[in-house]
């Protein structure tokens, strides 16, 4: 009898997990959904920004694509559970802000604790830099190989910096880092988002240690702001 009960309990829990995921759409359906429509997704946390004021912004993915959940209502306690790979379901509206496709006004967010987990491998998009196809990888975990650090300058200052605190150098340690990298003669501006990887993290300190001319490999999430604006999470010397 005990075994039977255990089996029934396990079955019920499995059915619950299925029921939670049941209302979710596939990535393809999400991708095809019109802006301003309500969507429900089931996906896996890849990273998240620091919790603040009852909200957390999440970088997420499933095996078919990636999502950006802007200001998901969440307790601080639950935010601590959002380790990479954590499965969840979320209902919100598909929106676009400065070109970034995202989930906003999230009304339901539930962690699914069914043992399922997924962490995306970075997609090498180096060859897509400067091309329209890059947008198809929006929000995904991506990598850039063999990029050269280019100088950044501050208005009224002729010094060449390898990075700036804030986009114009107005910040200080702990603020976002902005730096330029080039490939095949084209220069791109990348960001270490301080609420994702703040001071003291490996990537933050690695970028602070960069020198103009260094050739590096990078990983990050392909955030969009009037064009590609990747949030870099790892930097290493080019292989």
């Amino acid at each position: 009898m005990k075994k039977l009960l255990s089996a029934v309990l396990a079955l019920v829990l499995a059915l619950c997990a299925f029921a939670v995921a049941e209302g979710s759409m596939s990535y393809a359906d999400y991708d095809a959904a019109e802006l301003e429509t309500e969507v429900t997704i089931t996906a896996y946390v890849q990273a998240h920004q620091s919790w603040w004021d009852g909200k957390v912004t999440i970088y997420a993915a499933d095996q078919d694509g990636a999502y950006f959940l802007y200001e998901t209502p969440c307790s601080e306690e639950d935010a601590e559970k959002l380790v990479p790979g954590t499965k969840f379901t979320a209902t919100g509206f598909k929106g676009e802000w400065s070109g970034e496709i995202e989930l906003i006004d999230i009304s339901n967010f539930e962690i699914i604790d069914d043992g399922d987990s997924y962490i995306a491998e970075p997609v090498d998009v180096t060859d897509l830099l400067g091309k329209d196809e890059l947008a198809e990888k929006m929000n995904q975990r991506v990598s850039f190989k063999g990029m050269t650090v280019e100088p950044s300058t501050i208005e009224g200052d002729e010094t060449e910096y390898a990075f700036l605190y804030n986009w114009d150098g107005s910040g200080e340690d702990g603020n976002d880092l902005y730096f330029n990298v080039s490939k095949d003669g084209q220069t791109y501006n990348f960001t270490v988002e301080s609420y994702l990887c703040g001071a003291g993290t490996d990537v933050y300190e690695a970028v602070k240690a960069l020198n103009v001319g260094d050739v590096i490999d990078l990983e990050g999430f392909l955030y969009w702001y009037n064009g590609a604006n990747p949030h870099i999470t790892a930097v290493s010397a080019a292989e």
Binding site: L5, V8, V12, C16, V20, A21, E110
Partner: peptide, 22 residues
């Protein structure tokens, strides 16, 4: 209630009923 929450509540009721019966 979301469908998942409904399923969970129904499931829990079933389990309690079975535990009681046991």
């Amino acid at each position: 209630l979301p469908s998942g929450s409904r399923a969970l509540l129904i499931g829990l009721v079933c389990v309690w009923v079975m535990l009681g019966a046991y």
